[in-house]
């Protein structure tokens, strides 16, 4: 009900967009290999299921594995840098720089170094994933209320207690913001890593489709990637709802 209430506007825009697309394709008789119409894409999506579903499962598996490793690395790096401020000063700028290395260029290099196995693929996804998580987590730690940390210190809490009882839970909402961004990136990362040379995966399906001018399949792949990203995002959001229970629901306001 609520989703329908808020969601009908973007849905309407989307439908309008598809209608314009469909009508233009038919009106100007655009050839299928140049730009397929939405109905052709949907048809291919439905009929070609047996063609691509093993690609889909491969990508889902790779994305989950890569995301889990990337997220763990991201959180671990953030915790490490938070607990060792000197290290943080030294490493933080380099972490930001690492994000300026274009993944597309780096990917073939990784293949040269690590071969065609799963390792270079995981490295690509990790590189894409860890940054938003590390930055968001560090921010969360930094924002810990000084009043609460004064209280904890005066009560005699040790460094470990302050971390586990105060800083970690305080940062959880920020960590989830990072996870949400990374979850959508990880699908992109998986597809890019599959371009490097994989046996199956949406990335492979996409490359095959575009080299054989099956533009409709390229679009099927695009929509699959979008849907996958959305599903992962939703999963993280529901996980957040389950874990971060102390936030007021609804209008976002407490009682006073």
């Amino acid at each position: 009900m609520n989703i329908w209430h808020k969601g009908w506007r973007p849905v309407l825009v989307l439908i309008l967009l598809f209608v314009v697309w469909e009508v233009s394709c038919r009106l100007f008789e655009i050839p299928r290999w140049l730009l397929p119409s939405p109905s052709q894409i949907v048809l291919e999506g439905a009929e070609g299921w047996s063609n691509y579903y093993h690609h889909l499962t491969a990508t889902i598996g790779l994305t989950i594995l890569g995301f889990l490793i990337g997220a763990s690395v991201g959180i671990a790096v953030a915790v490490g840098l938070h607990l060792l401020p000197r290290l943080r000063e030294a490493v933080y700028p380099i972490i930001i720089l690492s994000q300026n290395v274009p993944i597309i260029v780096l990917a073939p290099l990784l293949v040269i170094w690590f071969g065609f196995g799963i390792l270079p693929k995981i490295i690509v996804i990790t590189l894409v994933c860890f940054f938003p998580i590390t930055v968001a987590t560090l921010d969360g730690f930094k924002q810990t209320s000084s009043e609460l940390s004064h209280y904890m210190k005066m009560a005699g809490a040790s460094k470990g207690q302050i971390f586990w009882k105060l800083e970690w839970p305080y940062a959880l909402p920020s960590i989830f913001s990072g996870l949400k961004i990374s979850a959508t990136y990880s699908v992109m990362g998986a597809v890019i890593s599959e371009w490097l040379g994989a046996k199956e995966g949406i990335g492979v399906y996409m490359t095959l489709a575009s080299s054989s001018f099956r533009t409709d399949r390229v679009f099927v792949a695009i929509f699959l990637i979008m849907i996958l990203s959305l599903v992962f995002f939703t999963l993280i959001v529901s996980l957040e709802r389950m874990i971060v229970k102390w936030k007021p629901k609804g209008d976002g306001k407490g009682r006073d």
Binding site: S145, E147, L148, H150, Y151, K153, M154, A155, G156, A157, K165, L166, P169, L172, V244, K245, W246, K247
Partner: peptide
């Protein structure tokens, strides 16, 4: 030396997740 007094700050300073 911390931990010798029981302190209540100006605002209640409750941990929101507890």
């Amino acid at each position: 030396k911390t931990g010798s007094i029981s302190y209540t700050p100006q605002s209640p300073s409750l941990l929101p997740w507890r």
